[in-house]
Nucleic acid binder design. Structure first.
Length: 649
RNA sequence: GCCGACGUAGCUCAGGGGUAGAGUACUUCCUUGGUAAGGAAGGGGUCACGGGUUCAAUUCCCGUCGUUGGCUCCA
């Protein structure tokens, strides 16, 4: 028995023979020492294990390192334990909630009793963590009975762990121990604390035990760790960079938008430059939509309460919305529109439709108002009044796939023109176990779901499919973009809807002369202009693509003697729709250049005696410097060429 | 909505129980300059708002509003 061999299949498909009881780490060692040094955990038949845990059967094994998400998660989870160990050492009696890894790092919810922690103590904890990490304590897995586990945490007087234990079954309970710290934990963990080379505790926040505000508020400590000091530096640099790009900061500095307490929280005021940017985006989208067969419509900002009773929104969201507006005499109730689709349904209904009319695509830059919870408001990304680049496609069931493909094309065109190169699509399907949760027939769902999957595949989208993430009214496809700093944002969305056509009794006459129900597709490539502008600002750090830039050029006369010539140049450029101002302040050219650079104006056009005599302008590009001199006509064509490149389909 | 932190000039921030200060921006004057900050003078604040404590509050306490970090929610 002792010499029994097992077959281990590695991710590349190769099969190797090992002695029964071999661990992930031993497998790594057999491949290379370098790999062994970097192995954080092992994925055994789809389950992440400690790299030291013996494998007893033929298995598929993937060795996880820092380059794997699961490897990182294991690393950060172990880091949470290390932080807990440090906290217990520094503040004896601390009680522990949960300490999971998150997208960037980890947190631990802890109860310090009466003590409150202030920010200055974070460094002390970091230092303790590094000190403990140097001990290279092994993470030791122990299987314990529920009784033992309860006894341990009763003794330790930790109510949270006891609460967690209540939900666990005897026989599946494990402890992990490193150094002097023992935690209830499913694992897995990295081999020892020595892997953790750098630590940064990022912030402290309150969080209710189990996320329930009836429970006690615990202190949540967020941190991040890395296997190399350099990576921490890079991460901190990225955080700094993100701070510099914060759209709230740039929005103020570049005079794009503002907020006013008097107007109300979450209600953005667009300044002239921001409005110009917005209008460019709108015109860009209108043009693209015109080409794709959309028709623009306009609907009012309010709608009768009955409209939302029909749509079902009143029942579902009415209580949490802005309250209805009452007419003084008739006592009728109107709601600020939270969505455009009910209005669009009524447009569809204004006359009988034939199958030959479909698809009908109604587009509207519709401003909607939603009562978002006050704590959730954030710059332009989460507001109470915003404009969607909304459209609703009414089509026959057999047209869903084709319409999806068309919308995907549109979204990809938009992404390309705006410089979002890294994106994925999430397909949200229904939970096949809980079909009763969803409206619409099985047949319709199956058809729509496969239409989405096929459309995404045909367009070669990189997709993730989530079961159970569909809305109750239909499946959807959401686009997630990664910005220049690698942060993920959800932008465009395409959703199939079976609910509203039903509720509004939408119909068309089919070729069989019978009434049929159309399918509705909601779609918004930007999502909302507000949110999109916010993401765009952070993505390009305020250096907008030339075609969008609210101030494309600035003309800088060397001295006031050349203002007249500057005016002349400005006139020529304005005729070509190139927008900008003359900096006619009584300042030196160096100063004017600096100010224009700070304002991120793409082109500075310098005019002095030389330029005036030659009928030229000296062109300086933001962030690049002097490009030499051109005639205004040459500049116009150069300028238009740049714009043409980014907008070509 | 809940918990914590914060709120001083347009912006970034210092200060602190005796009614405020810097840098920058702004205005005026000098300077007429060649690719990232020329010089001088000046104006500007109910220290978020409302109460309380105090001889005296911008400062301490409470409340409100707003911002912010989280939690929860998101058609």
């Amino acid at each position: 028995m002792s010499n029994q061999q097992i077959n281990i299949t590695l991710p590349d498909g190769s099969v190797r023979e090992y002695e029964k009881g071999v661990s992930g780490l031993q497998i790594a060692l057999s491949i290379s020492e370098g790999l062994a040094r970097n192995v954080l955990a092992a994925k055994v038949n789809g389950e992440v294990w400690d790299s030291s845990r013996p494998i007893h059967q033929d298995s598929k094994v993937q060795l996880l390192t820092w380059n794997d998400t699961e490897g990182k998660n294991t690393f950060w989870h172990s880091s949470a334990h290390l932080m807990a160990e440090a906290l217990e050492a520094l503040y004896p009696g601390t009680k522990f909630g949960i300490g999971p890894p998150i997208e960037n790092g980890f947190y631990y919810d802890v109860d310090f009793g009466d003590k409150s922690l202030d920010g200055s103590e974070l460094e002390k904890i970091e230092a303790k963590m590094l000190e403990l990490a140097k001990l290279k304590s092994d993470f030791i897995r122990k299987e314990v009975s529920k009784k033992e586990a309860v006894a341990y945490f009763t003794e330790k007087n930790d109510p949270y762990k006891l609460d967690l234990l209540e939900g666990l079954e005897d026989g599946s309970i494990t402890f992990y121990e490193q150094g002097n710290f023992t935690d209830l934990c499913r694992g897995p963990h990295i081999p020892n604390t020595g892997f953790i080379k750098s630590v940064k505790l990022l912030n402290i926040a309150g969080a209710y035990w189990r996320g329930d505000e009836k429970n006690k508020m615990l202190t949540r400590l967020y941190g991040i760790t890395f296997p190399k000091a350099k990576e921490l530096q890079d991460y901190l640099f990225m955080l700094e960079e993100a701070k510099k790009r914060d759209h709230r900061k740039l929005g103020r500095e570049l005079e794009l938008f503002t907020f006013s307490e008097k107007v109300g929280m979450g209600l953005p005021l667009w300044l002239p430059k921001g409005t110009l940017l917005r209008e460019r985006l709108v015109n860009f989208m209108k043009k693209a939509q015109d080409k794709s067969g959309y028709q623009q419509v306009v609907t009012p900002h309010i709608g009768h309460k009955a409209l939302y009773e029909t749509s079902g929104h009143y029942e579902k969201y009415g209580k949490d919305s802005f309250q209805p507006i009452h007419t003084p005499n008739e006592g009728e109730e109107f709601l600020l529109k939270p969505m455009n689709c009910p209005h669009h349904c009524e447009i569809y209904k204004h006359k009988p439709r034939s199958y030959k009319d479909l698809p009908i695509r109604y587009a509207e830059f519709g401003t909607v108002y939603r009562y978002e919870q006050s704590g959730e408001l954030h710059g332009l990304t989460r507001v109470r009044g915003f404009t969607q680049d909304d459209a609703h496609i009414f089509c026959r069931p057999d047209q869903v796939k084709e319409e999806f493909i068309k919308v995907i094309d549109l979204v990809l065109y938009v992404f390309k023109a705006l410089g979002f190169e890294d994106y994925t699509a999430q397909i949200s399907l229904r939970d096949p176990e809980k079909r009763e949760k969803y409206i619409g027939t099985d047949e319709a769902w199956e058809k729509a779901e496969s239409a989405i999957v096929e459309a995404a595949a045909e367009k070669g989208l990189q997709t993730v499919t989530e079961l159970g993430e569909a809305a109750f009214y239909g499946p959807k496809l959401d686009f997630m973009v990664k910005d220049a700093l690698g942060r993920k944002w959800q932008l465009g969305t395409i959703q199939v809807d079976y609910n509203l056509p039903e509720r509004f009794q939408l119909e068309y006459i089919g070729s069989d002369n019978q009434k049929h129900r159309p399918v509705m597709i909601h779609r918004a490539p930007f999502g909302s202009l507000e949110r999109f502008v916010a993401v765009l600002i952070e993505h390009c750090a305020g250096n907008f693509p030339l075609w969008l830039s609210p101030e494309q050029i600035t003309i800088l006369p060397i001295s006031e003697k050349f203002i007249e010539y500057a005016e002349e140049v400005k006139g020529i450029l304005e005729d070509e729709d190139i927008i900008g101002m003359i900096d006619n302040r009584d300042e030196k050219i160096g100063r004017k250049i600096r100010d224009a650079e700070v304002k991120k104006i793409p082109f500075m056009l310098i005019v002095g005696e030389k330029e005036q005599q030659e009928g030229k302008i000296s062109v300086r590009r933001h962030g690049e410097g002097d490009l030499g001199s051109l005639s205004p006509a040459e500049f116009v064509s150069y300028f238009k060429k740049i714009i043409g490149e980014s907008l070509k389909n």
